[in-house]
Every structure is written in structure tokens, then in C-alpha cells.
Design a protein around this nucleic acid. Structure first.
Lengths: 267, 267
DNA sequence: CGACATTTTGATGAAGATCAAACTGGGTGG
DNA sequence: CCACCCAGTTTGATCTTCATCAAAATGTCG
């Protein structure tokens, strides 16, 4: 973890290779770091839209509350995720952002974001890409909650989180921190925590996955993917599971190279 | 329906008042109109991303197919909706777009979209807003499918569709065309068509809603909203249920007036 | 009129919710 | 260092919603 922006840079790199100036610009923009506590709200539904937070360390989630008090988590936020690039346009938040753990976030002043996007059109495109991926993830969640069994749902979410964490360098060989309680999993997957518990045990017994004391270990990724119908296409990581794009652009045909000419970006 | 862009203009107007030049520019951009048939695919998952379609007439949906052949509809597209503004950035479609009825669509050439956004920054912002609303709708669908009963789900979807159709002038007093079969409703709501049918009858018997021969009639909107937990906030229509913004900006405090100064748009 | 899609009805079964209680383990303070 | 507490996990028993299968009724369009 060299700099604050490192995770974000790494994530964006799985879409396009960033130039040194672009990286530097990102790093400079996220200097205003603040800490947050676990189980707290960063932003609440109905609030006028605040600034843009970049998660540096720790986990958070987007959620919506129902009148009866139950909540639906509609997305997880991990280091390198921007909480809401889009917020600049809308007047009010239509959902809340809550933390799952303690951690650190950088607040992007709106002006520096504006400056960034004016001076670096390629960066604009990369940030835009990241919002589109968020959207694609949400769509996949509709499918997950709508049409998959409890077993598939959990397996699918594990594949997704592992893949996303891999892209920001937060996995080891076959495991990663996933500091989420079973109740929170239940809220995300629209299941009861009791049922989540039973299915987790099933996953353990079949030797696919262990999930204990906040750590997810995937023993058979291929099986997990095929059982859950996980296809990483929707994450739009050109590199697939390799994530990262640590290597230079040379033999890597997929990510857009740093000197590519692009039609001036749109929207 | 004076011009092709009229519905889009009307929808965007519920976010900000557009100037005559901006309207004219939009109208000129969507000249390449083509017809589509019912129950056909406009775009298929995995396709390289095509141009940007604007639905002028007819209904369509976004959907994803599961390995077992079942499908999840992840969003409805109505006249005035852009099928995928975002498509310019991503390499492949992560979902398909299928038509529900026959109709007409305008294909925005990518270049004219680029031109549009370069010359009219306020328009850029309005288009951006529309993509954010799409995203917010998808999030609400996660909640709908995840945490609401069949009765609430259907009621909620009806509220949403009525409100959205109202914003583009496709409703009468208390009813609208909604050319969707019960099976398609089922695919959208993650229910079986049998169950949809039963709940629809219940809705009829309780005197809240009728849905017959593709026409939705809402007999008691307030009751429907409160029973389903529908809060139009997530649609981000400043005007609330009034939609439209046909009237000039004068006494309407909410939408951003045509001469507003805005910080150069971002992303 | 006949063919086909769509809606309606009935009967049965299964996935997962709910309720309640016991167990685990890490942290705190006495 | 132990007792306690609290959050989180595990287990068991029962109940509900909704899926599934099958078939009849209705509607629509060439």
C-alpha cells in the first residue's frame, strides 16, 4: 500500500493502463483522509448529496431500509471503490451507505474531481467505466436474489467478492478477508440468517468453501463458479480473474494501452 | 407526438428545463429511425457494444438468461428511454435487450452523441442524470425482488411503471398501456406466472388495480403506494408524480432552470 | 374456424421463513 | 485470572409462501 490511491489505480488498471501523470493526479486528489468506525453510516438516504468518498481501508455497503425495519444491502464497497461518483448530479441519496468495519476513506472535493476530469479525459473514461461496472453488479444482484437458490446465491456472491478483491490485490492464493457477519450476508442475499448459516455449513461439508472468523477460503473455485453460474463477464475486467494489470501493457492485449487515442469521451 | 425526441425531452425536463437549442439538438440527433418487431432481440449479451438506441414507440426490456433457461428481466424500457448510453465505454454487453412489443427506435450515431455532449454541457448532465436514474431503479428492483411479498412486488412495479409512463406523457387520468404478459411480469418479479395470476386477481378483488388486455388501471393510487412501500424518491423526478414539466420554469422551483450556471460537468 | 398464446383453476410439494433456545468465543471490568 | 456479557453462530421444530405440474378456459389473429 504505497499511496492512498493505489487500490483505485489498480482497479482502474484492469480497464486501461494509466500513465504516470494520471496516477499522480489521482494520488494528489485524495489527500483528505478520514477514519470511520464500524457499523456507522457514511451517508444516509434522503440526505442532500455529500462529497465523494473513496474507500481506502475497510468494508462498507449500500443499503435500503424497508418500512418494517428489514434492510436490503444492495452492494458491497471494498477498498478502491468510490462511494458515489454520481452523487454530483442527484439532489438526494436514494439509499444509505453504512460501514461494516472500521477503516479509512478519502474525500474527493468536488472541484478536484472536476479538475481531474477536465485535464485527463482518459481518466474520465476510466472513472465512468467504474460506475458502469457498479451498475452491472447491481443488475447481477437482481438475478442472484431473484432466480438463484440460497446455495447458488451464496456461492455466487463469494465468487464476486473474491474476484473483486483480487482486482485490488486483497487476496492471497485462495482466500481473502471478508469481514461480514452471517446476518449481513443474509441482508444482502435476501435470506434469513438461519438459512445462511445452514447453507454455509453445507458449503463447508462439500469442501468448496470455508468462511470462518471473517475469512473466506475458496477450496475449489472452478466448482464454485460452475455451481453458482458465475460468469465474470459482468465485472468487465479485461484481465479476467488475474485482475491487477501490474505488468506493463506490452504483451497484454486487453487493457487499453496508455497512449491510445480515444474519441473524446462522452457524457 | 410532434418529434422523435419529444418523449426524451419530456423525461429530461423533469430533471432540468431544456433550452430551445438543446431540444433542437436532441431532435436532430435522432433522425435514423428503424422499426422493430415484438419479441425480438435488439441487442444480445456478449455482443460487442453497438450504437445507442432511443425507444420512440413500444416497450422493451433488459434481461439476463440463466443456464437453466429461465430468464430474469432486470428492467423495462419505455418510450423516451435510451437503451444504453453507457455502452460506448464497455466492450461487451453483459445483458440482452429484448422487445416486448413492436415499435420504433432511433439509433444515435456515436459521433452525434459526442458532438452533443461537447457542445451542450447541460445536456450532458441531463443524460448523465438519466443513467443514474436507471441505476437507482435497478437498486430498487433488488429490494423488490429480495424483500417484498408477491403482492407488494406487483403493486410496487405498477407504481413504478405508472410513474415513469406519466413522466413521458403516456398515461391518462388513472390508467396506462402496459403491454406485458403475466409471464413477463413473472420474469421481472421473480415469481411464477401462476402466482402472478393469482395475485393480480387479488388486486382486482380488493379494488386497487385492474390489469386486463395490456392496460393497467389504478383505482386507488395512494393505497397502492402505501401497501407496496413505494416512495418515488428513487426515480429522482423533481416534480414528483406530476412528471412532465410541460409548464415553463417560472413558478416551478424544482427543475434546474434553463439559464442556470453549473460547474462544468464531471465524468 | 382452427391454431396458438395467454389466462385461469386445482392439487401437491419444497425452499426457506420464523420462533425459540442453546452454544461459542472474544472482550471487559472487577 | 475469572466471571460476565454480548455479538455472532448453531441447532431444532413448525409454518407459510410460492413453485411446480397439469389441465381447462378464454382470447386473439390469420
Amino acid at each position: 500500500m504505497e499511496s492512498n490511491a493505489a487500490r483505485l489505480v489498480r482497479k482502474l488498471s484492469s480497464f486501461m493502463v494509466l500513465s504516470p501523470e494520471e496516477k499522480r493526479a489521482l494520488e494528489q486528489a485524495c489527500s483528505a483522509v478520514h477514519r470511520f468506525a464500524a457499523h456507522d453510516d457514511l451517508v444516509q438516504e434522503g440526505d442532500p448529496t455529500p462529497g465523494i468518498n473513496l474507500i481506502l481501508e475497510g468494508f462498507a455497503c449500500r443499503y435500503k431500509l424497508l418500512p418494517d425495519g428489514r434492510r436490503q444491502i444492495v452492494g458491497f464497497l471494498i477498498p478502491g471503490d468510490l462511494c458515489d461518483l454520481r452523487i454530483c448530479v442527484l439532489k438526494y441519496m436514494d439509499h444509505s451507505i453504512g460501514t461494516l468495519t472500521s477503516g479509512r476513506a478519502a474525500l474527493f472535493p468536488r472541484e478536484s474531481m472536476t479538475m481531474l476530469t477536465e485535464r485527463f479525459p482518459r481518466l474520465t473514461r476510466a472513472l465512468w467505466w467504474s460506475t458502469l461496472v457498479d451498475e452491472a453488479i447491481t443488475r447481477e444482484w437482481v438475478v442472484n436474489v431473484g432466480h438463484r437458490t440460497a446455495f447458488e446465491r451464496i456461492a455466487h456472491l463469494f465468487c464476486e467478492m473474491f474476484t473483486r478483491l483480487q482486482a485490488v490485490g486483497l487476496t492471497s492464493e485462495n482466500s481473502c478477508e471478508l469481514p461480514v457477519t452471517q446476518t449481513e450476508l443474509a441482508d444482502a442475499l435476501a435470506l434469513s440468517s438461519v438459512h445462511v448459516n445452514r447453507v454455509l455449513m453445507e458449503l463447508r461439508h462439500t469442501g468448496l468453501v470455508t468462511f470462518r472468523s471473517r475469512r473466506l477460503t475458496i477450496l475449489d473455485l472452478e466448482a464454485l463458479k460452475s455451481l453458482s453460474g458465475f460468469d465474470p463477464l459482468y465485472l468487465h475486467q479485461s484481465n479476467g480473474l488475474q485482475g491487477g494489470a501490474q505488468q506493463s501493457a506490452g504483451h497484454q492485449t486487453n487493457p487499453i494501452p496508455a497512449d491510445a487515442q480515444l474519441g473524446r469521451s462522452v457524457v
